[in-house]
Design a protein around this nucleic acid. Structure first.
Length: 562
DNA sequence: CAGATCCGCGCC
DNA sequence: AGGGCGCGGATCTG
């Protein structure tokens, strides 16, 4: 593939396709594309293309930044599941291809593989999507959602391109301190092997491979350590000399395997950690990551994320995003009032709804996850009376799911239907009522959580999209390389790499973008989304523990509050 | 022997 | 009877 085709579409949009897949108003050599796009950006068009991950890395590699786009792949997947869309309007000869279109493989240097795209008619697909949105009673919301989704795709590609500033020397020092020198391929590092030896010694099993669960279970049983499984939390409750070295082994093994030297070799280049994001990679609309493990960026290696000289990292996260989203989408003014301060759970205590912060948290998380028993279940019952609209919303979502029906997010993303992975256990006899019941309840828990997690993802998407634009506008009088830019995004937190002198402006932009996202989603009900923002040299210094929607710690240290 | 699945862990 | 992910190694399956 060496040529690309461009066509004007209504509404300042420009369709960009590969050979024979769409318009042919203008035909360019692929090599000329970046310069052409750069020149045309001045008009502020919305680029329409099959997949941002297919086109944008090439442009970024040539220093070309795009302001807006419409990602047809993401749009298609979104619309085909949106309950408020007439799905027949998406039908066409190439529909099955769009249905089955997966994301471009990360790091694939081949920009266009003809077999994957030659039968995709991007022009026709775009027309179908426009028609489907226009015909929907939710067209305004869906338009917003599609724009946010596409903006997220741009941000994702830009973050991979920019990368998290990464000090390999710091990372390797951490590894060496904890594991010992880098071992030859296939071997365990010294300190890991030493922990294994201690375990073998204490259990009297000289040939034990601690990575093998059956072997380990056998050895433990022989030493009369009686555990049902080998997970750390289970072992931690046992009083036996093997526990300490075994837990140490498991911790070090995990570090070695997930963010050790091999990880560095693969995902760090030129002083940047470049995870690959997959926007809307999860069913709820949250992003996933199919490379580099961006979703589990272990705290132990975060000290290696260090800003360049003269630069800083601005790290921001939202406290209790999902409970706040629940308050907003349900229009629960009492919960919204409790959410006015920096700590929603404390707000509930101050409201007199509950006697302790811990109870508030248990009750809210329990409601969002579908807890039915224990202390959490009891708190759900209590709080339902106090916040009937918020708790009623998730209850209703659960009931809809248990009936086998789909639910949607605030902006209109639909959940996957019951069936597929929810029902395809061939072993289960069809007349097994308890099993069927169990699965419907599981689906109900999913739909219950979907409405909140999915709307939370929409809030975060709007936040990132708005922030992206604000950052670009900052320092637009200087060279591109000197502008602050997003380098990391994870559900409810962002990290911006910024010239130190712009730190204050970036902090303001992060907060303004959060306010913008809240207004966009919950215009009728003003609801606070307080951020913890840290301006730091290293990511490890960021205030990471200011209370989270589903997290654990709750001791804010040294970060500024809204 | 390759590919799918499970487990246990990390993150939100 | 608590939601969503990715990842690596071990183990299972065809």
């Amino acid at each position: 593939m060496s040529r690309v085709h461009l066509s004007r579409l209504p509404g300042d949009r420009v369709l960009l396709t590969g050979d024979g897949t769409g318009g042919d108003e203008e035909v360019l050599a692929l090599a000329d594309l970046p310069a052409h796009v750069a020149a045309r950006e001045a008009e502020g068009p919305r680029w329409v293309w099959d997949d941002t991950a297919r086109w944008y890395p090439l442009l970024l590699a040539h220093g070309v930044r795009v302001g807006r786009c419409h990602d047809l792949r993401l749009g298609h997947h979104l619309l085909r599941r949106a309950p408020e869309v007439d799905h027949g309007l998406l039908d066409g000869p190439d529909r099955p291809l769009w249905d089955g279109l997966g994301p471009v493989v990360a790091g694939d240097p081949v920009l266009f593989s003809a077999d994957a795209t030659e039968h995709l008619r991007a022009d026709a697909e775009d027309a179908r999507q426009v028609a489907a949105v226009d015909a929907s009673p939710a067209s305004a919301r869906l338009t917003l959602l599609l724009a946010a989704e596409s903006a997220g795709a741009l941000a994702a590609a830009e973050m991979t391109h920019a990368g998290v500033p990464w000090r390999v020397d710091v990372h390797q020092r951490i590894l060496a301190d904890l594991l010992g020198p880098r071992p030859p391929r296939g071997a365990r590092p010294l300190l890991l092997e030493r922990a294994a030896d201690e375990v073998r010694e204490i259990l009297g099993s000289p040939a034990l491979n601690p990575d093998s669960r059956p072997d380990l279970m056998t050895a433990l049983r022989r030493a009369e350590v009686d555990v049902p499984d080998t997970r750390a939390s289970t072992l931690g409750r046992v009083d036996h000399p093997v526990v300490e070295p075994l837990l140490r082994y498991k911790k070090l093994a995990h570090l070695f395997q997930t963010v050790g030297w091999a990880w560095s070799d693969e995902w760090v280049s030129a002083g940047r950690f470049r995870p690959v994001y997959q926007p809307a990679g999860s069913a709820t609309g949250r992003w996933s990551s199919n490379g580099g493990g961006a979703l589990s960026f272990p705290a132990v290696v975060r000290p290696a994320a260090v800003a360049d000289d003269g630069w800083v990292l601005v790290a921001a996260d939202v406290a209790q995003l999902e409970p706040r989203v629940l308050a907003g989408m349900s229009g629960d003014t009492a919960l919204a009032r409790a959410a006015r301060g920096a700590d929603l759970y404390q707000g509930m205590v101050d409201d007199g709804a509950v006697t302790s912060r811990q109870h508030a948290k248990l009750g809210l998380l329990g409601a969002m996850y579908g807890a039915t028993s224990g202390e959490s279940g009891r708190m759900v019952a209590d709080l339902s009376r106090r916040y009937p609209r918020a708790f009623g919303l998730v209850e209703e979502a659960a009931r809809v799911g248990e009936r086998g029906q789909v639910v949607r997010t605030l902006l209109g993303r639909g959940c996957p239907a019951l069936g597929g992975s929810w029902r395809d256990e061939p072993d289960a006899p069809p007349d097994d009522l308890t099993d069927l019941d169990r699965r419907r309840r599981a689906y109900g828990r999913f739909t219950r959580n979907f409405v909140v997690q999915g709307t939370g993802a929409e809030w975060a998407l709007c936040w990132v999209a708005d922030l992206r634009n604000r950052l670009w506008a900052l320092g637009d009088d200087g060279p591109v390389e000197a502008r602050p830019h997003l380098v990391f995004f994870l559900h409810d937190e962002v990290v911006v790499h910024a010239p130190a002198e712009l730190a204050d402006a970036v902090v303001a932009a992060v907060r303004d973008a959060a306010d913008g996202a809240a207004r966009l989603l919950f215009r009728d009900l003003p609801i606070d989304f307080p951020l913890s923002v840290s301006v730091v040299r290293s990511y490890a210094e960021a205030g990471k523990d200011a209370g989270r929607d589903a997290g654990e710690n709750a001791t804010p240290v040294g970060e500024q509050r809204a």
